[in-house]
């Protein structure tokens, strides 16, 4: 079992790159520990900015730094970052087109039993609705590394959501195909397509194995680039299959399922089933317990696929 959460993978990349690039800045809102960025603050105190518990300030200060040539990464729990500072993300980052990367940590229901105040089940919908904001949910630590390295190469706004806990690898150090804004087709099957993002990709891949044993061949797509959605890969993946399942750690509206449905509905209409969190405060429990309860695991995805066969 991998022990490195995606948030730590982000820190590792920034630690490495900051040695060469003094313009890389990390900003936290009393969140350096939960963001796994304390080592960065220690190693590069001049490139670290603490804003205190003030997410609006976090994002606006990042925009100001970016406007003066810095490359800020603003890391804060996704629940607060995506809603408390939503307007700062909209105006100071996206509308003003500043080179800010917003890192939503402990996204989705990572905080489990802490309740709805700490869950970010709206962030994909919220951030995706902002013009000029890109939205990424990397699936594992290897892809997270590739994504952050790619984001350091461009100068456009982005929102990245990662979870709190380590996730099983989807890729390996040697084999992590990555192209910016291009989804990966992980398995190819003629019966059903499963499109997932973030930490739902691994269970989707495991579901495909279960289905394979039952004689059902599934295509699995890692749609880490939720916006801009890779429609070309999506349409290739769903071509010929009888149904599509989307899986996301998000509310049922405005997320990956909505976006995939829009594209499939317009270009090659077929049944699209959206597996997501409910439109309600989720049941209390660890994230694992909550996923199991709502069927957001390999068995649940496989069972849903069998229903559609």
């Amino acid at each position: 079992m991998n022990k490195i959460p995606n948030r730590q993978a982000i820190c590792n990349v920034l630690l490495e790159k900051a040695k060469e690039d003094k313009d890389i800045m990390v900003l936290c809102s009393d969140s350096r520990g939960s963001a796994s960025l304390a080592p960065f603050a220690e190693a590069f105190p001049d490139q670290f900015v603490e804003t205190g518990i003030a997410e609006q300030n976090l994002v606006s200060i990042s925009a100001g730094l970016a406007k003066c040539g810095k490359k800020p990464f603003a890391a804060s729990p996704a629940c607060f970052l995506s809603t408390r500072s939503y307007e700062q993300a909209k105006i100071d980052v996206a509308y003003s087109n500043t080179n800010v990367t917003l890192i939503g940590i402990s996204g989705g229901i990572s905080y489990g039993a802490l309740g709805m105040s700490h869950h970010s089940a709206q962030d994909i919908a919220a951030m995706s609705a902002i013009p000029n904001m890109r939205v990424y949910l990397p699936s594992d630590r290897h892809q997270t590394k590739c994504l952050i390295e790619a984001l350091l190469q461009d100068e456009k706004p982005a929102y990245v959501r990662v979870g709190r806990n380590p996730v099983e690898d989807v890729y390996s150090e040697e084999n992590c195909p990555f192209q910016m804004d291009k989804a990966n087709i992980l398995t190819e099957g003629k019966d059903i397509a499963i499109v997932a993002c973030g930490e739902m990709v691994r269970p989707a891949l495991d579901a495909a194995k279960i289905l394979e044993e039952k004689g059902v061949h599934a295509t699995v797509v890692d749609m880490y680039c939720v916006k801009p959605l890779d429609t070309e890969t999506l349409l290739k993946a769903v071509e010929g299959v009888s149904a599509v399942i989307t899986v996301e750690e998000h509310a049922p509206f405005g997320g990956l399922g909505s976006m995939v449905s829009q594209v499939v509905g317009a270009k090659c209409p077929k049944e699209v089933i959206n597996m997501a969190l409910p439109d309600a405060p989720v049941i209390t429990g660890t994230s694992r317990e909550v996923f199991d309860y709502y069927g957001l695991n390999a068995e649940g995805i496989a069972a849903k696929a069998m229903e559609l066969m």
Binding site: I61, S62, G64, L65, A66, C68, D92
Partner: peptide, 13 residues
């Protein structure tokens, strides 16, 4: 807050 970021960048540089 945006100007705080701009001023901070000036100090850093």
């Amino acid at each position: 807050p945006v100007c705080v970021g701009m001023a901070l960048a000036g100090k850093k540089d």
